[in-house]
Every structure is written in structure tokens, then in C-alpha cells.
Design a protein around this nucleic acid. Structure first.
Lengths: 398, 398
DNA sequence: GATAAGTACATCAGTTTGATTTAGAATGGT
DNA sequence: ACCATTCTAAATCAAACTGATGTACTTATC
């Protein structure tokens, strides 16, 4: 299932340029902690003062930015500071996890305005499941009180691998029944909003870039620890997707590093009782938390299982960081909050000892700034990223 | 030594659009084996017929393309086929290898017009070494008989890691004395041409993309086997460079996979005699060839050393291919021609057995289509890529 | 004459250039 | 202390410019 990529690159034209420059300016304003004035924008973007002025007018008219006070220099007319208006636009994010479906509404600066959770349904009747999901989305929007036209669209994050052409999940390890469900297109039809879909790890990485630990880095790795694990890789400001949209999968590392595999190892070594053997997606995570609790309590076997895991992850990320020349490694995902303090002491020295760290540049390691909802937040960020972020790719003709 | 990357993205303007569309068209013509007509170009690029017509006029005027016959349909005016004129422009490539410096002149379609080799000098006097190199370049150009103004520029490929800001090599493992030599800027000063510099593995990957095994793929890995080894990674048509321009280095794999390390292993295991212990960069390669000859002759210890090496490489590339979702893995570099037939039988099944191959898409494995000179050819391709290729990045203001 | 390829010309959209207006601080005289 | 003047940098206005597009027209072959 390879995507038919255009053999040659497409051209561009003026309307694209206009839209692009608009997002460049919005992006710059959004990224500056205290907003930016028009002259500062001109300097930052390389555009002329006049162009920036025109674009700002449009952004103000649409309510995407607001004028927020003045910043006086020593002499001359003081600069008028522009900031994004969080309530100017919103995006909806849906994270389909094997255990739970999370829905969030995000504002322009990446703040969670409203959220909702439901247990992941078993798919018996595709149409019914899809109808339930779109009802949930409608309820979410109604409860948030945001007018429909302020919502840019809907993002869906799913466990990989995905089929980006069909907009569906492919052989989802833990999502029996969801295969071949044309999630993207059907949700768009049902809700009336444009829908974008991506792997949850990629979505999470974009969330970190927009509003998390990587706002200031365009070269980082995001390591997602959930039911499965995977990486979101951003290099030179672009998110790696690869030939079939499935970049970020982890080769050999994955098989013996799933939550399942670790819980099973723990049971085999007698650290956890047989009754902890997981039968559903949620249970593996609960058993894992028991293992973490044991490690915390000083159980050395539990500790060694987790240390071994951390070591494998550490070697994997430092190899990946060397390969793509990252300056930052961010860990996150639903189970990270429980593991962070056990993992970091193992991983930090491994990364620091890697031959290219220090020789070329520092490589920072950090835990996510976003919480459990990083998948759903990321899903919504997919929409923000697609519609508001300045990707040169968006200049090209369709 | 982190590069100061712009915190925000830059805007674009009309002149950039003009240049970009021009390279889009040239790129499309170049990539089509038999050339393309104007209507076909319009369809391929998404530009209007008129725009394509205007651009073609400019390209014809500049001598970059030529009209080459007509392609008649059943009825109507036949299409006039446009092809690139190989002699329209040229680029110079220099590969600084620990053992040898290779100089080439490349035409527009990536053909080697002229080439030259010199043993790599020891740097005792920086100025003198640089003067020697620029003299060599001048001689190369004189011998090729190409007028100066037809030459777009000079590309330099060096072993990593590099300092892309200073345009110099950094702690080169085998290039004692070359550190801190401001190669890029000094060569530009001496020759008068713009000079671009990159790691040899990245240059080689670009060569494969322009005129080698990857002309038809925008998602591939290039694995370079030379004195050192490294990868060139291309994802969604962009070459990964990373935060300091040093993407493609190989973490743990590298240390025990250099030519040196293998020859030493062979000596330790008594497969090669102690007299084969390498003292210079060239000798390690010669000793390695002896090892290959032994393996070919049926020596099982030699064979097992090489198989072990191939296995490590195979696992590394398949992990990397999974991570970045490649559809193609290309092997090359100076020692590949000797190793290919021993490596492929080991590597192929490893890649094929990787969990994501087949599940998502095929991943082809192949040897380079270019020869020993891939580094120098790549260096010249850096120039072609920078000046003629349609990279959306080039749309952005400086 | 029919058909498809390619071009001339006017139009349109977005950026740039240069001149102009605007808002506040600094100056200096009373 | 007060106030008009001057100065400076920010922001905007108006006109020019550039490159893509749509429509109508010409060209080349069957």
C-alpha cells in the first residue's frame, strides 16, 4: 500500500503565496511568548513592512489576532504589540486509543477548552460506531458553547500503522474490528468539518511542537509510551512521514518493549502474579502500574525489568537521535507520567555517552509538558498545523 | 556547535515564485527519460499552459533545454518535445577522502565529463594546501575545455562530522591536520565560484537521487561504505541534515564496523597476518580486500567476519528504514563494489523479515548505480541540487 | 475542416518601493 | 512648570511591478 507520490514536484502561484505569508506571520506571532509588533514581524519574516501591515489587517479582521498594548522604545512611535486571540479559532481532536477515546477542543494557542472521554467501543456495526462518534463530537462542541463556524476542523489520531489514502487504520494490533473503517471520510461526512488523520505518535510530536516541550526546537524526537510505542521525528522543522505515512515505527525495539511483553516478562519471572495477566488493552497498563509500584517499593526484580526496558529505549533513541541529528528528545504518552522518574536516570547517561552528543552539540532529554491527553491534543494540533502553520509544502499546487 | 536556526519561518515573494517554478519545470524535464512537451509539463506541474510556455522560452534562451523533435498524436498539432541540454551548464565536484582527493566535472544530466585524482596531501601549511587544491580545480576546468561562465559552482564532499557554519571538517577521524581548515570559504575565494560543502554520505545520497539508483524514489536510505560508514537519508523528497548538518551518523553500529575494526578483528582471529595491520587510510582498505578475497576463496573464518558485519549493517538499515518509512535502500561507497555480492545475500533476508516490510510496502535493496566516484559526483550534485532542483525551501526569503 | 498544441493579450493578486501620516518622547524657550 | 516644536520610529497610502491565469487566437498536422 504505497502512496502514489507525484513523480515531479508541483509549481506554485500567487494565491498560495498570500496564504503562506499569512501563516508565516501568524506562526511568528503565536511563537513569540509576548506577541510581536509589525516591524518585528517584518524583520523576523523577511517580508516588507507594508506586506506585514496588510496581513495583520486581515488577521485582525478575522479575529485571529488582537492588538495588546504598546511597547515604547526610547523615542519614536511605540510599537503596537500583536498577540493571537486564543478564541479566534478552535480545533477538535479525537484520539482513538485501544482502551479509551478522548475528545478535546483546542483553542489557537493550544489550550484545552473542553474535553471528554469514552471507553473505546467494539466495532460490530461500522455505521453505528461512526454515528456514535459523530454524536460524541457534536455533544462536545455543544457543551463547549463554541459556534460551529469558529471551528477549523477535526483531527483524528490513531495507533499505527495507518493507510493515509483510505483514511483508515491498518491491522491495528489492539483495535480488532477497526480495520477498514473509513474513519476519516465518514467523520467528515457526518460532521461537515474537514478531517485530518495521522498516527498518534506523529500527532503527539506535533502537539509538543505547538504547545509542549518542543516549541523552540525544530529538530527533535518524540518517544511515545502507550499501549504500543513509537517515535515522532521532526527534522529541520518538518515532521517525517515517509513513503506510506508510517514513519516512526520502531524496528526490533518494539517487539519486546510493548506493555504486554513487559508484563508477561514480569509474570514469567514471578514478579507479578499470574492473575495480573492482561486480557484487554486497559489491563496491561494497570498491571504495568503494579510493576512500577513494586519497583518503587524497592523490589529489585521489578526494578531490573524496568531498567532493562529503559536501557533498550535509551539505546534506541540515542541511535535515532544520532541518525537524524536531533537536539532534543521528548518522552510522553499515557504511561510516561508513571515511568519518568524511573526512566530518566537510566536514559540520561546513555544519551550523554553517545559518541556524537557533546562532539557536535548538546542533546537535551525531557519529559512531556503535556499530560495524558497528548494524543487528542495532538490530533487537534494536526488541524492547527495544517491550516495555520507555515509549511513550505503548502505552497505547492494540489 | 549548534547552528542558529531561524526561530520563525521566513516569508516568500514573487521573484522567488518565478525562480521556483522555473526549476520545477526544469526538474520535470530532467527527470523524464525522453523529455516532455509543454502540455505534459503543464499537467505534471499543475501550472497553466501559458506559464509553462513562458518558462520554456526562458530555459530555451538560456540554453538549458533544447527542442528535440515532435511527438504526434492521432490528430492535432504534434507536441514539441523538450529535453535538457547536457552542455547547458556544468558543476565541479571535489571529494576529500582520507586516501585520495577526486575531482570531477558534471554536466546537467549528471554525466561525468572529466575527472582527476590526487593523493590526499598532509596539511603542513594551510595556505599552501588550499592553493594546491584550487590549482587542481583550475587544471581540471582547463582540461575539460568548458568556458568558466558555464560552470555553476563547486561542491565539496568531506567525511563527517562537519561544521556547516565554518565550512570545515570537525575532528576528522582520518584527516589529521584538516581540522579548522576553512575549506569552503577559501576555495570560493580562490576559484571565484560559489562553493557548497556537505558530508560525503549526504552528497552521495544526492548523487543517487540525481543520476543513480534513486532517481525515481523520494524516500530512500543510502548506506555509504568507505573508510568510515554513514547514511544519507531522504524522506519525502528532502535530504535530512538535522540541527548541525550531521544527520546520517551511525550510533553504536559505527564503532565496531569501520574498515579498521574489521581488519583488526581478522588479525586477532588469525585470519589475516600481523603484517596486514594498517598504518594509513589506504592500507586498511587493501587489507580488507585481502579479507574479501579469502572469504571468496572459501575461508570460513573470513566469511564469518564479513557475515557478522553484514548482519550488523542489515539490522541497522532495516531499523532505520522502518523509522523513516523508506521504500528503497541503496548501498554504495568505495568498498561496496568488492563487498556487494557477499553482503546482499545476508542483508536481503534481514530487511525482508523486518516486521514492517510487506505489512506496509515493499522495501527494495540495491547496490549503487554509480561507481567509486560517487562522493565526487555527489559533491557536484550538491551544486546542481542547490541551483537547479525545486526545493520548496528555496522559496523562502534569505 | 477537425483537433490539439502553443502563444498573445488583458486581467488579477500579492509584494515592493517611496512618500506620507501618526504617536509618543525629547528639547528648549518662556 | 508649561507648552509648542522637533525628532524618531512605526505604520499606512498610493503607485508600480511581477508573475500566474483565463480567453481568444494562431499554428501544425491528420
Amino acid at each position: 500500500m504505497t502512496i502514489d507520490q507525484p513523480t515531479v514536484r508541483r509549481g506554485t502561484n500567487l494565491p498560495r503565496v498570500g496564504d503562506f505569508n499569512e501563516s508565516v506571520v501568524l506562526d511568528a506571532i503565536r511563537r513569540a511568548p509576548d506577541g510581536l509588533s509589525r516591524v518585528e514581524l517584518a524583520a523576523a519574516t523577511g517580508l516588507s513592512a507594508q506586506t506585514v501591515s496588510n496581513i495583520c489587517r486581515r488577521l485582525l479582521d478575522r479575529g485571529l489576532v488582537v492588538e495588546a498594548g504598546k511597547k515604547g522604545g526610547r523615542v519614536g512611535k511605540p510599537r503596537t504589540v500583536l498577540q493571537v486571540s486564543p478564541g479566534g479559532s478552535f480545533a477538535i481532536g479525537v484520539h482513538l486509543d485501544p482502551a479509551v477515546v478522548t475528545y478535546v477542543v483546542l483553542d489557537l494557542i493550544g489550550g484545552v477548552v473542553h474535553s471528554m472521554r469514552q471507553p473505546t467501543p467494539q466495532v460490530v456495526d461500522q455505521a453505528e460506531t461512526l454515528a456514535d462518534m459523530s454524536t460524541a463530537v457534536q455533544r462536545l462542541v455543544d457543551e463547549s458553547g463554541i459556534p460551529r463556524e469558529r471551528i477549523l476542523g477535526l483531527g483524528v489520531a490513531v495507533p499505527g500503522p495507518i493507510d493515509p489514502v483510505a483514511g483508515a487504520v491498518v491491522e491495528p494490533p489492539q483495535l480488532a474490528g477497526w480495520e477498514r473503517v473509513p474513519l476519516r471520510d465518514q467523520l467528515s461526512l457526518a460532521t461537515g468539518w474537514p478531517v485530518v488523520m495521522d498516527k498518534d505518535v506523529i500527532a503527539a510530536a506535533i502537539a509538543e511542537r505547538w504547545a509542549g516541550a518542543a516549541v523552540h526546537s525544530g529538530n527533535f524526537l518524540f518517544f511515545y509510551l502507550g499501549t504500543g510505542s513509537g517515535m515522532g521525528v521532526v527534522v529541520n522543522d518538518v515532521v517525517l512521514r515517509g513513503v506510506s505515512g508510517n514513519a516512526g515505527e520502531i524496528g526490533g525495539l518494539d517487539a519486546n518493549c510493548t506493555t504486554y511483553a513487559l508484563v508477561e516478562e514480569a509474570i514469567e519471572r514471578g514478579v507479578l502474579g499470574r492473575e495480573k495477566a492482561p486480557v484487554g488493552p486497559g489491563e496491561a497498563e494497570r498491571s504495568l502500574l503494579d510493576l512500577v509500584a513494586l519497583a518503587d517499593a524497592g523490589d529489585s526484580s521489578a526494578r531490573s525489568i524496568i531498567d532493562g526496558w529503559a536501557r533498550r529505549v535509551g539505546l534506541g533513541v540515542s541511535a535515532a537521535a544520532t541518525l537524524v541529528d536531533s537536539e532534543l528528545i521528548v518522552f510522553g504518552g499515557p504511561i510516561w507520567p508513571h515511568l519518568g522518574r524511573l526512566f530518566l536516570p537510566v536514559i540520561n547517561p546513555i544519551v550523554a555517552a553517545s559518541p556524537f552528543v557533546g562532539k557536535m552539540h548538546e542533546t537535551a532529554v525531557t519529559g512531556t509538558a503535556l499530560g495524558d491527553d497528548v494524543g487528542a491534543v495532538g490530533a487537534a494540533c494536526l488541524v492547527l498545523d495544517q491550516t495555520l502553520s507555515a509549511r513550505p509544502q503548502s505552497l505547492l499546487l494540489a
